[in-house]
Simulated assay, not measured.
Amino acid sequence: MEFKITHFMNSVKLAFYARLALILHALVLVLILMHFGKTIIIPLFFALLISFALLPVSRQLENWGLHRGFASAVSVLLFVLVISGFVYLLSHQVVSFTHHLPELQIKFTAMLQEISSWVFNTYHVDYQQQIAYLKRSAGSLEDTAFTSLGATFISVGEVLILTIFFLIFTFFMLYHRRLFKRFILALFPHDQLHKVEDVISSAKSMINRYIIGLLTEMAILIVLLVSTFAILGIKYALLISVIAAVLNVIPYLGIYTAMAISMVITLADGTPTHALTVAIVFIVAHFLDANILLPRIVGGNVKLNPLITIIAVLTGKLIWGIPGMFLFIPLTAIIRIISEKVEGLQPWAILMGEDKEK
Rank of each mutant, 00 (worst) to 15 (best):
W64V: 09
L267C: 07
L14V: 12
W320A: 04
L307Y: 06
G157H: 07
L89W: 09
I207L: 09
L31M: 15
I83Q: 11
T170R: 00
Y17K: 13
L304A: 03
E343L: 11
S75K: 05
S11Q: 12
R178T: 12
L54P: 04
T315S: 13
L318I: 04
T257Y: 02
L221T: 15
A312W: 00
F70V: 12
D126M: 04
A312M: 03
L314W: 02
G37M: 09
T332S: 12
G85T: 05
E158F: 06
V284I: 15
R136W: 08
V313E: 05
L81N: 06
T152C: 10
L294P: 00
T98N: 09
K107S: 04
H176C: 06
F120E: 15
A285N: 06
A244F: 11
I308Q: 02
I23T: 11
M218T: 04
F172L: 12
L14E: 09
I297V: 15
S75R: 03
G300I: 03
F46N: 03
I234L: 09
I184E: 02
T144D: 08
A151K: 13
A290W: 01
V342Y: 02
L14C: 09
I161T: 14
Q130K: 05
I231G: 03
H194K: 14
S201N: 14
K356A: 10
K303E: 08
F287W: 12
F282A: 04
L214Q: 15
L134Y: 11
H286T: 03
Q130S: 05
V284L: 14
L304Y: 02
P102T: 02
F171I: 08
K13N: 13
R178W: 01
A245Q: 05
P251H: 01
R336D: 01
Y17Q: 12
E217K: 15
A203F: 07
F70I: 12
K181D: 02
L162A: 14
V302G: 00
D198Q: 13
A71D: 01
A151P: 00
L33W: 03
K204A: 10
D269W: 02
V226E: 05
Q129S: 15
F79E: 01
A258P: 01
Q105I: 14
L351G: 01
V199H: 04
N121R: 13
H286N: 15
